[in-house]
Design a binder for these strands. Sequence first.
RNA 1: GUGCCUAUAGUUUAGUGGUAAAACUUCGGUUUGUGGAACCGAUAUCCAGAGUUCGAUUCUCUGUAGGCACC
Length: 404
Amino acid sequence: MKKPIEFKIEKKLPGTLGRAGTITTPHGVIHTPAFIAVGTKASVRALTTDMLLGLGVEAVLANTYHLYMQPGEELIRKMGGLQKMMNWNGPTFTDSGGFQVFSLGAGYGSNVSKVLKDMTAVPLITDAKDEREDAKPKLVQIDYDGAAFKSPLDGSIHFITPERSMEIQHTIGADIIFAFDECTSPAESRSYQREALDRTHRWGKRSLEYHRSKEISERQALFGIVQGGRYEDLRKESAQVIGAMDFDGFGIGGSFDKEDLYTAVKWVNEILPEDKPRHLLGIGEPEDMFEGVENGCDSFDCVAPTRLARHGTLYTKTGKIHISNAQYTGDLGPIDEGCLCYACKNYSRAYLCHLHKSREMVGPMLCSIHNLYFIVNLVKKMRETIIDGTFMDFKKEFLSRYRS
RNA sequence: GUGCCUAUAGUUUAGUGGUAAAACUUCGGUUUGUGGAACCGAUAUCCAGAGUUCGAUUCUCUGUAGGCACC
């Protein structure tokens, strides 16, 4: 059977799980480690695909749940699928909707998202059930077969099973698609993690079987997703179970406590087959990606660079800045000294501060260009330094400045 | 010139005989497989003077400023 993607390791990072390589897809090559831009609704917010190319973005990740809800499968088919409709000719990914089982379910209306800063968060499901008075009504109900989503657009109920997620992802047509899974909060009890993990494994198997039964699996790669919360045994078991299935690659999922993120990734990547690519789902802060790369992750996606940009927070080599802060109102320097992005080469902090305050539309655009350029090129540099053997020096130097 | 109305945060407005509220602005912060160009917090104020009253931002008078109407 013809393989949809080919993964090659070019160079390993000695003494670690890290590696640099390439993923060849039907729509082009991804040089790994790579940062994949998030374009949830078939659009990287505020940016055109020409801008993405100009930044050095190699691949885009869209979302099954969002595209299914709007504009829906029929229109996507009519517009010719993801690549065609968004005019992006490079590689694409779609997330399965599994994250929305969490973000619109247990996590909905809470302050728990991808990475927790401390463990003060309460369990969202196990102990309190739906009795918390401050809880917003959930938009998701989970059962054995799948998850029922209530559309925020019109209140209609949609039942997504692993098979449905595959079907929708086949219609969307990304090069790399993900198995349907359940992301959990790290604050959830062990028994709930156990239960959710079994579900993720069952759903993974069903996703794979359904996908393999279709001819399209020769053109679209399917990645299985590892879960297990913060428990070492569950994480390892998940890596074993999912790693043994015939997926084309793997995603590492979950909502993490900051402390657990790196260890969890290491536990998992020590077990997953070395010859297949591994994507760390939803992670994208610089410190986290250094650890992810060192611990064997090949790609990342994250809303942070674009979301932060829209809200006026910008990455610089010496840490993040808030462009709307008073100190930048008359600052004629670029966002980040020495940065070669379009925004830094042509505009001042003072101008971007003005755009942000006056809510001009090019503000989010220029800020998104900068942040994405910063993150994409940071990961690109990690790749280059793995290849030329200076990764550890680069990491040390970058982080000491970034944290200063 | 006469009459009437108005005066509360930087702005636009609530409100009360026991020293005041909101929105926006301003100033900070948060944001990790995008529900949310979103959210959280902070600063800051009763036009001036006199009177009534235990107590006036509130009631009365005068002044000042603005608006409206009439001459």
